[in-house]
Structures are given as structure tokens and as C-alpha cells.
Design a binder for these strands. Structure first.
Lengths: 236, 236
DNA sequence: TACCTCTTCATAGTCACACTGTCAAGAATT
DNA sequence: AATTCTTGACAGTGTGACTATGAAGAGGTA
């Protein structure tokens, strides 16, 4: 994050080419020769950077997963109220999926079901995000925002499963009719979930309508504040 | 369905073996030789029944998908009220996933993301089920059970996405703690969704607590009634 | 310029596995 | 006994992941 837009190394070019080709044709139907041609290097060069074709596949989502997790981990503690936090995490997810459709298709369709992928650093980042969401939900149950008997695992699956299902379907068979983006559905979606699990029905949720722009602005603010300080303490 | 438990043909044995091995090692890591050994036939015999290794993979879910769709299509029209219908469809899904974990893992993790699979009869059956659910939701919006401004695609993704997410997670990393089955989560889950989209809040849903046993009993009842009649007219 | 060393890449392989062709052995039919 | 039909063993072929080798270029020392 410190060095912005450094020149693309050969390694970067290979990963960019691989992402494009894997997303288009699927891992199995893509050949190394194809990728090496697209990247402008030879087959053997790829094997200097990546041990196997699968290692190349696994390397692709690592940076973007880590960056997203770090960005969200930096901002979330500054948001008050679990509803706001949960909403912010969902916004990060959606933003990630919408602005990197190739990455998302790769991760959701080809990597999540791969046993070996589950032992890579990229998957660890994804797990941390998922765990952060679960923690927020549990916090909401503890602090009385949500019903005492709500099942946090179920809630998490509702939140993530729905978004993933929407994304996968839209990715594979086009979005239905007049809809423009998943973001448009977020408000009614979250409202249904929160309505169903809120302890006090009349409570509207103070930060419910936080938008991605707000979160980005918050991120910049935090960045600046830390730039002035010694860069290590940011615990709440 | 007429001939019950006919002796296993070689073709059946090959598909059984393939299901086991594909589910265990994944499509790519399974070899034809392995499957032929498990099925007690030679490699070439497999190619007498299936054009390619992928054709074999696609053939596996066909029967079970069709059977499930037909069973649900037969029962649903007899259930009054969209909430009961939707609940029944969800019960069929869950029943399908829980009693055929190998099939489900194969379909959810390896087939749904395959472009060519989307042109097979098995996928057509899956699409019909999904469409039937969507129709129920739309009916609920039209007849005033659900809010006028509810988005039927969102609701469908909530219903199916959540269940699939739960199943995939439990399949891959074990179910959390004291939970026994997805069925246990169905009541609170459906309650949250319906609570969030019902037009009249006090309306409890007459058939809300229908169980899988009830549906099976209903199926048998219909079976018998039809057995007495000419077997071709059952339009509502 | 001549000589050495080190990095980077292209060529020409090897190997595993999906898939095919051939033919013999057995079962069923006549 | 003669004939088709079905099945499987075996020996291929072709593709594509992966590797071993050596050439081309960059940098250093006389």
C-alpha cells in the first residue's frame, strides 16, 4: 500500500493474465501456454515464479483478500453499534464482488470448493473476515440489540449466503430485468434480516444507512490521523 | 418409479462408483482407472456408456434431481397458502441435501460452477425447482401475503443462498457445536424471512409448521388416489 | 577487447492420463 | 455347431503439465 502503482513485474503480468484466462475458461480448461502467451513470457518462466499451475491459481486472490480484510479491520472499530458494523462489513463484501468480478467468480466458483485452497494465506484472510462478521453478530446478541435466542451461525449464513447467491446467479445468467446492482438490494435485504432478529422492534439502528462512500471517507480520515502519530496504536 | 429396486446394471454400478470417488477426491483428481476398478469393470467399458469423463459426471445427478423435482411438483399444488408452499419447497431442498450428502457436495461444489453442466437435463430440473420457488414468492406478493414492494429475486436468494451456505460450510468444516441438523434451523430461519416480508404482521401462516413427514404422507395419499384413477390427469 | 560469472528465458524434451482401436473370450441365439 | 452380441485386456495416441539444458544478455575485472 505504501508504493503506489509500481511498474508491473513479470510476476504481476503473469498473475493478471492468469486471472483473466482462469475467469474466462475455468481453471481446468485454461492452459499454461495460453497464459504465458497472454503475459508475453515463456511457459518455463511461469514455473520460476510458481511451483505448479495450482499455486499460480492460489496466488491470485491473496493480495486482494488481504487488502480488503485489512481495510475493513481498520474501519470497523470506529463504527458505533453492531448494526452499523454489520452493514459496513456487508458493504465491503459487495464492493469487493462488484468491483472485481473476475476475482469474485474465481474465488466463489472455483476456489472455495477446493480443499487445498483452504490452507493458503488467501483463505486465511477470507476466514478472518467471516469470523469478524460472526463476532459482530454475537456482540449484538450479547448487548441486547438482537434477540437472545438468535443463532449467530444462521444469521451469518443468511448475510453471506444471500449475497453470494445473488452474485453467482447474476454472474452466470445475467441480472434480472431493471436491477442495476447488488448494492440496490442491500437496504431492503438488511432490513428484512434485522427486522427479524432485533430485540426491540421500534429501534431503528443509528448507523443503518451508512454508505460505502462514508466508509471510504472514514478510512481516509483514519489514515491521516495515523500518519501524524506513531503508526502502531489503533485499538479502538 | 414403477420398477422398485431393480437389479443394478453395470451402468448403475459405474455411476455409483463414480459418485463415491468424485465426491471423495474431486472430479480432476479422480481417474477413470480408479472408477473402473471400484465398479469392477474395465476402463473401456465406461466409454461404452459415457462419451467422456465429464459426461459421466453430468449423468450422476440427473435421476435424483428429476425425482426430487417431480415429487415436489406433485405435492405443492395440494398445499394451501404460499407460506406453506414455500416451506414445503425448502423442506424438499433440505431433505435432498441431508440425505444425499455426496450428491449435494458434487452439485453445489463442482457442478453449479460448470458452464457445460448448465445445458444438461439435470440442471434443467434444478432450474425448474428454483423457478417454482420464485413463482410461489411472486404469488405471495400478488395475493397480499407479502409486502407489495418485496423483491422476489432477493427473497429467493435469501431462501436458497442461506441453506446452500449452511450446507457447504457444514460439509467442509463440520457443523458448529451442539447443532444436529439444518432442519433444526429451518423454523427460526423461515420465521425471520417471513417476519421481514409479511404484509400483515399478526398473520401467523396457517401451514407454517408443516413437517417433512406430513409432506411425505401427503405424497403417499396422492399416489394412492391416482393409482385408482387413470394415471394422467393431475392438474390441481 | 578478452574473459568470467550470474540471471533470465526458450527449446526440446518426459510423463501421466483421458481416450481409442483391436481382438479374443464368453454368453445368447439359432 | 454356427452365429451374432457383449465385454474387457492391452497396446496404442494425443494433450498438456512440468523439467533439464543451454543460449543470450548484464555486470565485473584485467
Amino acid at each position: 500500500m505504501t508504493e503506489k502503482s509500481r511498474p508491473k513485474t513479470r510476476k504481476d503480468r503473469i498473475m493478471d493474465a492468469a486471472l483473466r484466462i482462469f475467469a474466462e475458461k475455468g481453471f481446468q480448461n485454461a492452459t499454461i501456454t495460453e497464459i504465458s502467451k497472454e503475459a508475453g513470457v515463456s511457459d518455463a518462466t511461469i514455473y520460476e515464479y510458481f511451483g505448479t499451475k495450482e499455486d499460480l491459481l492460489f496466488a491470485i486472490p491473496e493480495k486482494i483478500s488481504n487488502d480488503t480484510f485489512e481495510a475493513s479491520a481498520k474501519v470497523i472499530p470506529y463504527i458505533k453499534g453492531v448494526e452499523g458494523k454489520i452493514r459496513a462489513i456487508m458493504l465491503f463484501y459487495i464492493e469487493l464482488y462488484q468491483s472485481n468480478p473476475d476475482y469474485s467468480a474465481l474465488v466463489l466458483l472455483q476456489l472455495m470448493s477446493n480443499k487445498r485452497f483452504r490452507q493458503t494465506p488467501a483463505h486465511a484472510a477470507i476466514r478472518r473476515s467471516s469470523h469478524a462478521l460472526l463476532d459482530c453478530i454475537k456482540e449484538g446478541i450479547t448487548d441486547g440489540t438482537f434477540k437472545k435466542d438468535a443463532n449467530p451461525y444462521l444469521i451469518r449464513s443468511m448475510l453471506m449466503g444471500t449475497i453470494e447467491h445473488l452474485f453467482i446467479h447474476w454472474h452466470m445468467q445475467g441480472r434480472p430485468k431493471g436491477k442495476t446492482s447488488i448494492t440496490d438490494l442491500l437496504d431492503p435485504f438488511i432490513e428484512i434480516v434485522f427486522d427479524g432478529i432485533r430485540a426491540k422492534k421500534e429501534f431503528p439502528g443509528t448507523t443503518l444507512y451508512l454508505k460505502m462512500e462514508d466508509i471510504k471517507a472514514l478510512g481516509n480520515l483514519i489514515q491521516k490521523k495515523e500518519g501524524g502519530n506513531s503508526s502502531k496504536d489503533k485499538n479502538k
